[in-house]
Every structure is written in C-alpha cells, then in structure tokens.
Design a protein around this nucleic acid. Sequence first.
DNA 1: CTGAAAGCGCTAACAA
DNA 2: TTGTTAGCGCTTTCAG
Lengths: 344, 344
Amino acid sequence: MTRTRNLAANRAISIEDVAKLAGVSITTVSRVINKMNTVKEKNRVRVMNAVKELKFQPSIFAQRLATGKSNVVALVVPRYEGVFYSFYVLELIRGVGTLCDALKLDLLLHLTDTRAPLNIKGVGGIIFADIIGNRHQLEEALQTKIPCVVINNYIEDLDVPCIAIDNAVGAENAVNYLVSLGHRKIAHIAGDTVTQAAAQRFEGYKSALAKNKIPFNEKLVFKTDYSRGQARQAAEKLIKMPDPATAVFVASDAMALEVMAVVREAGKNIPNDLSVVGFDDNPSGLYGPVALTTVRQPLIKMAEESVKELNQLMNAKKKSAFKKIFLPAELVIRESCKALQAPR
Amino acid sequence: MTRTRNLAANRAISIEDVAKLAGVSITTVSRVINKMNTVKEKNRVRVMNAVKELKFQPSIFAQRLATGKSNVVALVVPRYEGVFYSFYVLELIRGVGTLCDALKLDLLLHLTDTRAPLNIKGVGGIIFADIIGNRHQLEEALQTKIPCVVINNYIEDLDVPCIAIDNAVGAENAVNYLVSLGHRKIAHIAGDTVTQAAAQRFEGYKSALAKNKIPFNEKLVFKTDYSRGQARQAAEKLIKMPDPATAVFVASDAMALEVMAVVREAGKNIPNDLSVVGFDDNPSGLYGPVALTTVRQPLIKMAEESVKELNQLMNAKKKSAFKKIFLPAELVIRESCKALQAPR
DNA sequence: CTGAAAGCGCTAACAA
DNA sequence: TTGTTAGCGCTTTCAG
C-alpha cells in the first residue's frame, strides 16, 4: 500500500498535494523545487503551476532532516556589559543580516552568556563576533565540525578562518598623522583591553611613537571600559595635567565625542587646544560642531565577508585551507585635528 | 525487520543510539527527554546516563517535523533608513534576545525590506517590531495562523495582541512638567511621524498645550527624520527666532543631545537659556555636562512581555482574546530644565 | 509503565 | 526523464 495520510486535519500543503495536483510523483516535484534540470519542460510547468495554485512552500524542517543540512547561521555575540550600546555590534548585525537575507540563510542571534555552553544543535554554521571570554565555545563548536568563522579577532593558534580589522596599523596611521601635524605629546584613551581590538589599537599607538622616536609616557595613557563615562573622567584628568598633551588618540568615536565635549565645557577649543582622533567612523561623529577625524573600520564589509566565507564552507565538499585576513582600516581626516602652531 | 541504519557514516548521535545503550526503546528515551513522568525511575536514570555519556542532543528538525511545532521566534524589524543607528532597536533586540534565551526559543532576526514578502515558513511565532510600511506583512502572517505579537504599535483594527508604549501620555507629562516650571513658549522637535511613536508624541505635546490653555503655534514645531543632523538644523533655527522658546520637548534623546550641543556652541547655557526634555532614557543622556531630563520608555519590558505573550500563544490550545496594552512611560527629571525666572 | 510501528515532509539512491 | 522506495530522527498512538 502506498503512503496514507491524514486528510482530515487542516495540514499545511505538502509536496504530495502538489504531486497529486500536477499529476506527477513527489520526486519530480522535489526536483523542480530544487531546480534540478532533469525535468521535462512540460512537467516542470505543471508542477510550478500547482505550486503556485496551492501556495506551496516546502517544509524546511523536512528538508533539513532529509539532507542533514541546515541553512541557519548563528551569530554569536558575547554578552559583555555594554555591547548592546555599541555602534560596532549594530553594524555587525546589519552586515551579517543583510547578506544572510541575500543568500537565503536564516540568522540566529545568539546573545550568549560567555560561560553557557552554546546551543548549536541544528545550526549550519557559526559566526563568532569577537572572542571575549568564550574561547571554549569556539573550541567546542570547532570539534563538532560545524563550519565556523571568527570576525574581529585574529586567532593564530586555532584552525579557523578569521576576518579581522587591522587595528594596529589603523592606530599607527592615526598617530602618525598627529605626528605629521607636529604633535609630540600625544595621549591615548584606550578601550577595554580584554578585547583584541582595543589591545591592538594601544599597540599601534605605542609602535607609532617608537617609530617616530617619541618616548612612551605611561601618564598619557588612560585605560577605560569603552564607556563614555570613563572617557569623560579620562578627559578631565587629561586637560588638568600641568603640561598637557596637544593631541589625543581615542579608541572609539563615542569616547572621542565625549572628550571633545569635556574640552569644550572647559572653555577650550577643538582643534586649537587639542587635536582629537577617534576610531570607528561612527556617523554621530559627523554631527557635532567639529567633525571628528577618525579611523574607518570596514565593519559591514567584514560582516558580509564572514557570511560569504561561511556560506562557502557550508556548501564545500571538502575543507580547504582556512584563510585568515586583516581588513585595512583607513584614516578619515575631518576637522578635529590641527597642525601645531609653534615649530618644535 | 526492524529499523536499519547506516552505521558506517559518522552520523550524529541519535535517539536510537541512546536507546540501545540504555537498553530501552526509543519511545522511552523520547519520554525521558520530553520530561514525561510515566517512566520508571530506574529506566529514567539509565536513559539520562546514556544521554550524558553520548552527549546526545535531540535533532530539532526531527522534533519539529514530528510535532509540527517550531520554537523559532522571528523578530521582524522594518529596515527603514537609520533603524540600525537607533537606541530603540538595540534595546528591543536585547530584550527579546534575553527572554528568548531564557525560554529556549530561537531568535530569528528578520531585517526586512518592508516590501518583500516575509519568509516565515517554519517559524513558530512572530514579533513585529513596529509597523512601518509593512502592514501587509502583518496581515499575511495573521492569515497563516502563525501566532503574532506587535510591539511599539497599537493597532486597533486587527485581531492581534499589541504591546505599545503610551507615548502620548509620556509626552503630555513632559510638557506638563515644563508648564509647571512656568514655561509657556514650548517648542517641539518631532521625530519621523510615519512612526506611530513620533506621531503620538506630537499629539501628546499638542494636547498638553491645549489642556494648559496654551495656544498651539506651528512655528514652534520642527519635523525631522529622527536624525541628529536634522535635529541640529532645527535647533539652529530655534535659537535664532526673534522671540525664542524657553523650553523644548524633543522626540528623542539622541536629538535632544544634539540640541543641547547647538545651544552650547552658540554660547548659551542649558538649562538657563533653554530647558530641554528628551524621550527614550538613552544612557548617553547621562554623560554630558548636563544630565538630560527625559521620558523613560520600558523598552526592555515591552520586548520581554512580547516574548512571554508570544510563547503563551505558541503553546495555547485554543486562542483567547488578544490583549492590547499600553505600557506607561515615565518622566525622569534630571538637570536640563529650569523654572522660568521672571513670573509670567 | 513500556515498546512496536506509523507517520511527519522531504531527499536521494536505484530502477525503469 | 521519471517514479519507487528507503531513510532522515523524532513523536505519538495503540497494544500490551
């Protein structure tokens, strides 16, 4: 006896209904919806018409159960304090979301407690947005053989593709620019150095100083958690110093805006009294009285590349060598820096 | 003959493996993992041990195929220009994401082009975050009988639960507060009135004026698209007016911050020269030189409530009456408003 | 309390 | 080209 089905219930339209209406087998229907070109035009048309008439949409669960494949892409974002207020995460979601849409992938957002084990059953691929205290999650995922891509973090010692931003060079360029303007007393307001990005920006700052033979002065470095509050505190200290810096490189635009606000509140002027460079190219840097000079990160591009890479991995027969790349960050010169008046 | 399986492949652990190891039938395993209390303790323990030993996780696809149910919650966010820079959307994602995590629901983020048909096959429930030009998507979804919840939009004429913020009353309170401080010349910088929230805030502004017998003056209203750029333009016009307003109610904190910046750049003082009330309770309102008085929206609560409601709907046997509720928005008084010196 | 067996809707050999 | 059929891994009757 052939397949029996419960015709009473108001079940959703299934492939069988389509087959019946089109007068073909379910296999043929399957071939049509999977765009296999081994179906006669005549049958193809009949099937397509039946599909249209019944408004048939294949069950993704049945498809996935049958193929063992999944189109779900999980975006894993460590839920550390404050991520949700960051420009960076939104850009990532936007970039990943957009490309997932385009490639017909489903985006699963994992706002993960970094300590919880990742629930990745049924996920076809994973994008780790930064690795902050959740390296074990990445390692576990890798063991399950689910394709993974890491973004915004360059991981040397794990066999996984990485797409990161070249924060060090970006930071170096920023500082070099300040040096080229005649500044030698250059402060740095760093982000939270548990993130690789902040650590690399700090490194870039230091190496630029070294290359320009400017001695590193610890007093000119302020470590923060990336919050505007701590940026404000740092800026207040900065402008009160006896022989203050003439320029500052700030690890994020949000913080740089806060620094500029503090300077103005103190009755001073940007860029005359202090040159400021940010990092991010956050659009809010454009709207203040003085447009912020900053370092643009290709966040959207990074996010999109990660989806492309992951998609290839998910469809690959055998795995190839994993690429690890740095995307360049580019200096965007606007109005918040000025050449030092007095010659050195 | 009983079930045959391809033992060669490196398949994932299945319920059958667990059954074999535990020495029971797959049915019993199924009962255990579904927490049905019709299994003898002894067998339950054996199954649990086998599960642990094999690190078995049931296939969600098979589960869903078998039950016809899905734990996927789609969060549909209209992709209009600028949503991604809004505090509001991030809060929503955060709230929805957190509760989905807690309830073991999968969050699917649909950053939808408002015109594209929604891809909701396999989705167990949908949360519409605001309805902006995508009412048809909501209507289609409703027809498929998939449970839906709408947030941040009160929809009278559709049979769907709504959880919205009482923007009108929130705005009224803000303006009443300014009036209580002696202000009578109160401007309003409105958001994009294609959003219901902005429209309601504008309504609240008008009705507060009316209730206080203050004539409505169109010249004091500035319509924007919620961007800081347009807020800046509005603020510049505002302070240049011959007989300027003494207070302004701004439809978002981000815009209010921009307004305050413009005022300061003009050499004027907040709150002495202009009282400012925002809307959102965006944390960045806290860090400026003058903490912003604003209207707090329970965004996280709204988001969480929507997930709870949806979860109930998804598990309900029969549908009950849909509730439509307004969550109150609360005035948060900080430092950006001042009582008018001269008696009126 | 337990297990056999019939699906759930689809894909992928294999045969025709 | 097409159709038959055996799974994919789980839930859920229905007997026992």
